[in-house]
Design a protein around this nucleic acid. Structure first.
Lengths: 202, 202
DNA sequence: GTCTATACTCTGATAGAC
DNA sequence: GTCTATCAGAGTATAGAC
């Protein structure tokens, strides 16, 4: 990517990333075309390629931004807080992320679905490290009898899958619910109940 | 698709569908190429197109097979059985489906992620109908005090998301767990605990 | 910095020999 | 029924004028 120096460069770089997010998240990497992205960004295709040297570079820039945002709520789970409340507020933050950034969620889902060809290092590195760390916090809470004993890594998986489902399968969720429903407003209390019940110490 | 008449036609049609499943599930519709599918099927590209008139027709034939298989476990949830056990065995069957047919799960996920352009009718039709029917069974069980009161449609969503996650995000699941783990063997008891706890009447 | 024109590659699909 | 050859269109990327 071109390092933005002027206000115009700043604006165009942003417009391209915004357009890339829109198109890549909806069509996947191969399905997206530079024509589409350029049109959404309001630029000509060669002009887009002046800011980013290739289609790949736009996609990679988006993925790079993504992981930090995505892991942030988990990173904030506080080892010294109240166990059940810490998990529940992690769930809430993750659900808000799905609601407010569904395109980012779908971009990530697309990438993983296809075998994570460009994110493997991040998953095996920073992501796994963070999960291992938080899993051991969860395990300690279980040993101390403050939450129920369950597989801590699968607990984290369950939080991911239940919250991301609302962004990734948005079309299906809305179609099955029918009109007049707010999926996220309904999911909040549901997930609250689910995790409270599951984690209540025996 | 060509209606198979001879043994050769039968074999080649199957090989193409099998290859199509392999490639489409891994790359999505746009990402897959006829060259790849033909190679996996062990045929030349024109020969493939002798059996199926277009790329689209291979993809549609796969989607068509898919929905019935996918809804079967839900259809078998017995309104006259024991509520908690009925839900749990639905969860188990769905998890087995993810384990035994992960490519089908990813094919479906790809399609929904991109807005279900070719499955909207099935989702708004048969799928929604079945969900509505089973949701009312769940509601009756709740009214009778035999399972906890939760949003029944979101309960179904939660079963879908938790089980399909293991197929759709397989790469991430295995990478985060690290070597020496059997994701499905661990998920079974975990999900059992989760749904038992969640559904226990207050 | 941005555009028009274009080179080159990939891909879906067809023609026609065998 | 299957293959070789090939077309037409789409798509990424570059050249070069302004």
């Amino acid at each position: 990517m071109l390092k933005p120096k002027t206000r115009i460069q700043e604006r165009n770089s942003r417009a391209i990333l915004e357009a890339g997010l829109e198109v890549f998240s909806a069509q996947g990497f191969r399905g997206a075309t530079l024509d589409q992205i350029a049109e959404v960004a309001g630029l000509s295709k060669p002009n887009l390629l002046y800011y980013f040297p290739s289609k790949d570079s736009v996609y990679l820039a988006l993925l790079e931004q993504l992981l930090a945002t995505w892991l942030d709520p988990l990173a904030h789970m506080n080892p010294d807080g109240d166990p059940v409340e810490e998990v529940l507020s992690y769930v809430r933050r993750k659900l808000e992320l799905s609601r407010d950034f569904p395109r980012e969620s779908r971009l990530f889902a697309n990438e993983i679905l296809q075998g994570a060809p460009r994110m493997m290092d991040d998953i095996a590195g920073p992501l796994k490290t963070l999960v291992d760390e938080k899993a051991s916090v969860l395990t300690r809470w279980m040993v101390e009898g403050r939450i129920a004993r369950v597989n801590p890594v699968h607990l984290i998986f369950s939080i991911w899958s239940l919250t991301q489902h609302y962004a990734d399968f948005d079309v299906q969720v809305r179609t099955v619910l029918g009109p007049g429903h707010d999926p996220y407003a309904e999911a909040g209390p549901f997930l609250d109940h689910l995790f409270r019940r599951m984690l209540q110490p025996a």
